[in-house]
Design a protein around this nucleic acid. Structure first.
Lengths: 187, 187
DNA sequence: CTATAATTTCAGTAATTACTGAAATACAGA
DNA sequence: TCTGTATTTCAGTAATTACTGAAATTATAG
């Protein structure tokens, strides 16, 4: 298979970008290719289109699978495995956010939780704990909120986001209306 | 300087985590050290505490500076440069989000914008463009909304987040009240 | 069960990124 | 200005990560 210039440039961009996102070029390109492909592709087609070795593609797909970013399927009368990127971009966004939280946030939250518990036996540790407590509270607030927001269906989420700057006004209303009053705990 | 076990483990964790965040160990550790240090530190103190070469620290600080994550200051009667991490964790969060957007999102948005503009001369490109359009719209919606939210002061932001799952209820209200009505465009 | 095709694993190698020490540069005080 | 100290740069090297081809494994059709 040879890619059209348009798809080529999309694929290459994702490969380059990959490094900034902590994934490697191969993985980025494979995902990009699947994303713009109408039909699912098998590993050999991918290897061919991107000029990677078959084994490299295998590892890349495994990585993408661990991120839950590809769907595996079979075509009738063909025993090869075919891969595609889910169509719903909002679902993709959720998946990505979820996985990143698990890998990049949760371990830190857990470390902070532990570090905050022990009683400090010197002024430096007391100070450090105060800082960690602030960081922990921030991360927890943001991630809890994010996971709440994530539960909303696409339509609602979209509305919420389009609302944007008007959020402040909304808050003034909710204050008056007593909505969300149970959330008033504060550090 | 030698670190207490508590601060040691915090610093080491940030070092390890760094790789998942696309920053290197050195940079992660330097930042962590500054974050839990009550007083600003000069480069030599950092190099000493973390057992890195002086030049490595210099590069690490340069990197942190490019992320706007450290403050540089001078102590009276001392010509060395002292570094500290800003105290306000919400401000740090904003800075980080801002920089990541600039580096990791904006280039992709711009690539997508260009790719969408050209008229496709084959069915594959037409399909690819449809996908790209969906991705572009999602990213734009999310980042626009995020930059709106970011403008809110900490107090309001905190309230908004604590609100969490109640957001849906709020939207029902705003629907009735006609707030945010101008945002009703939909793809 | 056997033959064959598909996929994965993995050891070796290539490429990239991180780190150091030495040299160069910048900068404050005399 | 000069002199000593602080900082940065950069070429070389170490460490890590990415990639390949061959071999092993898994799966399927007959």
């Amino acid at each position: 298979m040879n890619l059209t210039p348009l798809r080529q440039s999309f694929v290459l961009h994702f490969g380059e970008m990959g490094s900034r996102w902590g994934i490697n070029r191969t993985v980025g390109q494979i995902y990009a290719l699947l994303f713009v492909s109408e039909k699912p592709l098998n590993a050999e087609e991918i290897a061919d289109a991107l000029a990677f070795s078959r084994s490299n593609v295998s590892m890349g797909l495994k990585e993408l699978d661990s991120w839950k970013l590809v769907r595996l399927q079979h075509l009738p009368g063909d025993r090869r495995e075919y891969f595609s990127a889910p169509e719903d971009v909002w679902a993709i966004f959720r998946t990505l956010a979820d996985e990143r939280r698990k890998r990049e946030i949760d371990p830190t939250l857990s470390m902070l939780r532990d570090a905050i518990l022990v009683s400090p036996d010197n002024p430096q540790d007391a100070f450090a704990q105060a800082r960690m407590r602030a960081m922990h509270e921030l991360i927890e607030t943001v991630t809890d909120w994010f996971s709440d927001v994530q539960k909303l269906d696409e339509q609602t989420l979209r509305k919420l986001m389009k609302l944007g700057a008007a959020a402040q006004k909304v808050l003034e209303f909710t204050g008056k209306l007593g909505l969300g009053g149970s959330n008033e705990r504060n550090g």
